Amino acid sequence: MDAINVDDLGMNEGELLLAGLLEQLWRMALEAPARPCSLARVSKRVHRPMSALMRQLSLLSEAGLVAVDAREEGGGSVALTAAGRALCAEWFGA
C-alpha cells in the first residue's frame, strides 16, 4: 500500500496526524474488515496516549469519518464509517 503524498496536499502538522491516524485505521480495517478496532490497539499502533487519540477521534467523528464506541469504565472501539472508508480508499488505495 502506498503512503499518501502529503506534500501534494499542503497539510499542517495537525492534519498530518489525523491523516496518519486514518491510514492506520484503514490498514486495520483491511486486516479485519468485519470488526471494529479496539481503542487500546489503535493507541498502541499510532503511538499516542489515549487522551490525545480520543481528541483526534472526536474530530474525525464530527467529520463523519469514524464511529467511536468509548465506554465510561474504559476501553471501547472505533470503526471507519462508509464516508471514512471511501476517503481512505481514495487516499491510500485498496
Rank of each mutant, 00 (worst) to 15 (best):
G10H: 01
G10Y: 00
M11Q: 15
M11A: 15
E13T: 02
E13M: 06
E15S: 12
A19F: 06
A19C: 02
A19R: 05
L21I: 00
L22E: 02
L22G: 01
E23I: 03
E23V: 00
Q24L: 09
L25N: 05
W26T: 07
W26P: 06
R27M: 12
M28F: 05
A29C: 04
A29H: 08
L30R: 03
E31Y: 12
E31R: 15
E31H: 13
A32R: 14
A32T: 14
A32F: 09
A32P: 05
A34D: 14
R35S: 14
R35H: 10
C37M: 14
S38R: 15
L39C: 06
L39I: 07
L39S: 01
A40R: 04
R41G: 08
V42I: 15
V42S: 11
R45D: 07
R45S: 11
V46L: 05
H47S: 08
H47C: 05
R48E: 00
P49H: 13
M50N: 12
S51A: 14
S51Q: 14
A52C: 08
A52F: 07
L53M: 10
M54D: 11
M54A: 13
M54I: 11
L57Q: 04
S58D: 02
L59V: 13
L59P: 02
L60N: 07
L60R: 05
L60P: 06
S61M: 14
E62P: 04
E62Q: 15
E62W: 08
G64Q: 06
L65S: 03
V66W: 09
A67L: 12
A67G: 08
D69Q: 12
D69C: 07
A70H: 09
A70F: 10
A70C: 11
R71M: 07
R71W: 06
R71P: 03
R71F: 07
E72T: 09
E72R: 13
E73K: 14
G74V: 05
G74D: 02
G75F: 06
G75A: 07
G76M: 01
